[in-house]
Structure formats: C-alpha cells, structure tokens
C-alpha cells in the first residue's frame, strides 16, 4: 500500500496526467477558447478585440480565488522571512545546514499553513491559457484556406456564431492576427512598452520581499529583466496576444492592489517592509525570544495569528487533543 503512494508512483502519475492534458490540449483548452472567442465576437458587435478583452476579464475574474490564495500565501511567507533569516544564520556553518534548514523551513510552513508552491498556482494555471489563447487566436481568425477549413471542425454545432466566420480581425486600426511589429504606428512600439510596463507592475506588486541578499538581487534583476525581455518578445507576438497579456496584467495589478492595498506597488506591502523585518532579525530579539519559549511559530509574525491558530486547531482536532496554545496557557 505504501508503494502505491510512493514518490516515484506519484511522479509517474503526475507525468501521465500532464501528458494526457497535453495530448488532449485542443479538446480541453483550445476548442472551448475558440468557441468562446467566436461567440463573444458575435455578441460584442463583431469586434474581435473586444472579444479578447472581455475574455481576459472573465478569465481573471474566474481566477480571483486563486489570486487571493496566492496573495495570502505570500503575505504569510513575507511574515516568515525574519525567522528564515535567523535560521540561515544558525545553520550557516554546519555542513548539513542546508538540509536541516530545508526540513525546518517545511515544518515552519506547515505550522503556518503556508504552501511553498501556492504562489505558483495562478502562474501555472495561466501558462496553458496563454498557450491556448495564442493558438485560439490563430484558429478563430485563420489566415489561410487550411486554417479556415480546419475551423469548421473546431466550432461546436450548437454555437450560434459558427456561421459568422471568418471573423474580422481588425481592432482600432491593427490586425490582431498580424505580428505587433507589423502593426501601424503607434501600436507597433506602444504595445511592447505597455506590455513590459504592465508586467513590471504586476511583478512589483506581487513580489515577495527576500531576506537573502542574493535572492533579493536576483528578484530585483528579474523584476527588470523579465518585463524588458517580454516587451522585446512582444514584437513577435500577434497583436491579439499582446492585447490579452496587457489586459491580463492590468487586471492582475488591480486585483492585487485591492487585496493587498495600494501601497504594494510602492514597496510597503502588508504594512511590513522587508527592511524593517530584516532589522528586527539582525537585532536577534525576536529569535532569542522564540527559542526560549521553545515554540516553532510565535507572535513575531503577527499576521500569521489567525491562520496559525486555525492550523493548530485543525491539528488538535485530528489528534483529539487540545490546541497547543491552550496547553501552553495551563502551564
């Protein structure tokens, strides 16, 4: 039975699931997207650009629960940063420090109810949507006879807009199927800049402050490098995809700003800046108190309070014991 849930088995099952999803990518992702875009085009005054924007808004709204989960996860991880820093210092000179640190980090995450991969969820979910939309744009507005003939096999029989194809791919003077670099001025250079800027804002608002100097440097580098690279690559994207990415980023920024507060863009997320937290750790006050109390998770991470207590209660309920905090109080 143990072998059934072994790590290797889980990896094999995971690979099989991913392979199946890729194998049926058209059926599961692209075909519904093409039908949605064609239907939206009919509803939105035969305007394919509006269809893409509306589609983007809908997708982002549907992903709000995941975005909220991601933001909360990041908030918790931010709060854990001082302890992470202290732990790094403690294991710095030990030959097996990295493994020990990793194990303790996982324990800390578990106690705080943090999923280390939770931040990646929306990003991972977005990737198939990006790939799918890229293909869907070309499929919904085919430029060749082959593509047009193939579209008939993609559209559902019940789709009332199926007879409206081929769709008009023009939107405010640019062809959404054509590459951004071929779009008329000012779209040919404005779109890459806007995509890059919106991506920077999206990364900035959702970046997690890091205590580790090297990680912080890497994050800072990626904060600028990725938008610049992406802006550059946008020249090679079809304009429709650029419109999707732009609006997706803008909506993402807006949603995160609502959840985290507008200060997030200015680098003072969640009311605790990285510098303040780092200073507290360096003073060693927090860590010393923690260790004396012998608690794994303590009151320094005040924002953790509610979730931490909840996970305590859940653990206690499973073990049919009283929560740790209550036991501590009796002592």
């Amino acid at each position: 039975m143990g072998a059934l849930f072994s790590r290797r088995t889980m990896i094999i099952v995971g690979i099989a699931v991913v392979a199946a999803a890729i194998w049926e990518f058209n059926l599961i992702v692209i075909n519904p997207m093409v039908n949605s875009l064609v239907l939206l085009d009919k509803i939105l005054f035969s305007n394919f650009g509006l269809a893409i924007i509306f589609f983007t808004v809908t997708v982002r709204l549907l992903m709000i629960p995941l975005t909220v989960m991601q933001t909360r996860n990041m908030r918790k991880m931010s709060a854990l940063q001082p302890r992470m820093k202290a732990m790094q210092a403690r294991y710095k000179d030990h030959p097996d420090g990295r493994r020990l640190q990793s194990a303790e980090t996982m324990k800390m995450y578990k106690a705080a109810g943090v999923s280390p991969v939770g931040c990646l969820g929306p990003m991972v979910l977005q990737m198939p949507i990006w790939f799918g939309l890229y293909r869907a744009i070309f499929k919904a507005v085919p430029a060749t006879p082959e593509g047009t003939a193939n579209l008939s096999a993609v559209l559902y029989g019940w789709n009332p807009a199926a007879s409206d194809v081929p769709l008009d791919s023009m939107f405010i003077g640019m062809d959404l199927v054509d590459l951004v670099q071929n779009a008329p001025a000012p779209f040919n250079f404005a779109l890459p800049i806007l995509v890059g800027a919106s991506m920077w804002a999206q990364q900035k608002i959702s970046a997690m402050p890091s205590m580790d100097e090297r990680s912080a440097q890497t994050n800072q580098m990626m904060l600028w490098l990725m938008p610049i690279m992406f802006g550059f690559f946008t020249f090679q994207f079809p304009a429709g995809l650029a419109v999707y990415i732009l609006f997706s980023n803008l909506i993402g920024v807006a949603i995160t700003a609502v959840i985290s507060g507008p200060g997030a863009l200015l680098g003072t997320r969640f009311g605790t800046s990285a510098a303040t937290a780092a200073a507290a750790v360096e003073a060693g006050v927090v860590e010393a108190e923690d260790e004396q109390k012998g608690e794994v998770i303590d009151g320094t991470a005040t924002v953790l309070g509610e979730d931490s207590r909840r996970s305590d209660r859940q653990r206690a309920r499973k073990a049919r014991r009283k929560p740790r905090r209550r036991r501590n109080r009796r002592r």
Binding site: F138, P142, F233, P238
Partner: peptide
Amino acid sequence: VFILTACVGDLDP
C-alpha cells in the same frame, strides 16, 4: 517564447 513565436508559421499558406 520560442515555441510561441514558432507557431506564427500558421499564417503561411
């Protein structure tokens, strides 16, 4: 990005 841009071949008859 390379994979994405490679798909532009769909525009060619």
